[in-house]
């Protein structure tokens, strides 16, 4: 359906903006390495099913793309973040990983290793942007491209919400776990979305309070 395609495209766009920004500027300035490490963990743990199940060519190609681009991003960010004197990427990611794992143990579609990993990846994804938002807040202002990247990334999960509503009515399917974590993720972004709307859409520079 249209919401899901739009969500996936938004996700792709966010990655292209990110990689392009890093490569053009040859700098990791303003971009959180920790957030990108978390996303790599999210993709690897969620897409282990590549090894034993097949949905569609689209699905497989997208999964391979998301895993490989997230690892590529980490390599590039590592390379360029060394040159930055004040790199405010100091969010404690263990505070995100450990609770996500516990939530994965409690809420899952069956107490199996693969299901726990899948649930863990959903919980972790919902909060993975926090180091990036934290960094943005600390530095006070940011490059326009970085905010477009964060916006496109947030939009992807937000668009999945109407997709889930559509699927509930069209296919009678709903996944409480995916929907709950998707809503949490969108809520985590809500303050950013508001500021983005105020500053970028209304075209007046960008800075977080």
């Amino acid at each position: 359906n249209i919401f899901r395609i739009a969500g996936d495209l938004s996700h792709l766009v966010s990655i292209f903006i990110l990689i392009n920004t890093i490569n053009v500027k040859k700098s990791a300035q303003g971009i959180s390495l920790k957030t990108n490490i978390l996303y790599a963990v999210v993709f690897v743990t969620r897409y282990v099913d590549l090894l034993y199940s097949y949905t569609s060519l689209y699905n497989t190609l997208m999964k391979i793309f998301f895993i490989s681009s997230s690892i590529y991003t980490i390599v590039m960010l590592k390379k360029y973040s060394k040159n930055i004197q004040q790199y405010n990427d100091d969010f404690k990611i263990e505070y995100l990983i450990a609770p996500s794992f516990v939530l994965g143990l409690i809420f899952n579609h069956g107490f199996k290793f693969s299901e726990i990993l899948w649930s863990f990846s959903l919980w972790l994804e919902s909060v993975s942007i926090l180091p990036q938002l934290f960094m943005l807040q600390k530095s006070g202002e940011s490059q326009l491209l970085t905010t477009h990247y964060i916006f496109a990334l947030g939009l992807y999960r937000a668009l999945y919400i109407p997709n889930w509503i559509y699927r509930y009515f069209a296919e009678g399917r709903f996944d409480k776990l995916a929907i709950t974590t998707g809503i949490i993720q969108t809520l985590v972004y809500s303050d950013f979305f508001y500021v983005y709307y105020q500053k970028v859409i209304k075209n007046i520079g960008f800075s977080l309070p």
Partner: peptide, 10 residues
């Protein structure tokens, strides 16, 4: 309703 996980999504 079918509450199967939506594993066909990304």
């Amino acid at each position: 309703k079918n509450s199967q996980p939506l594993k066909d999504e990304l």
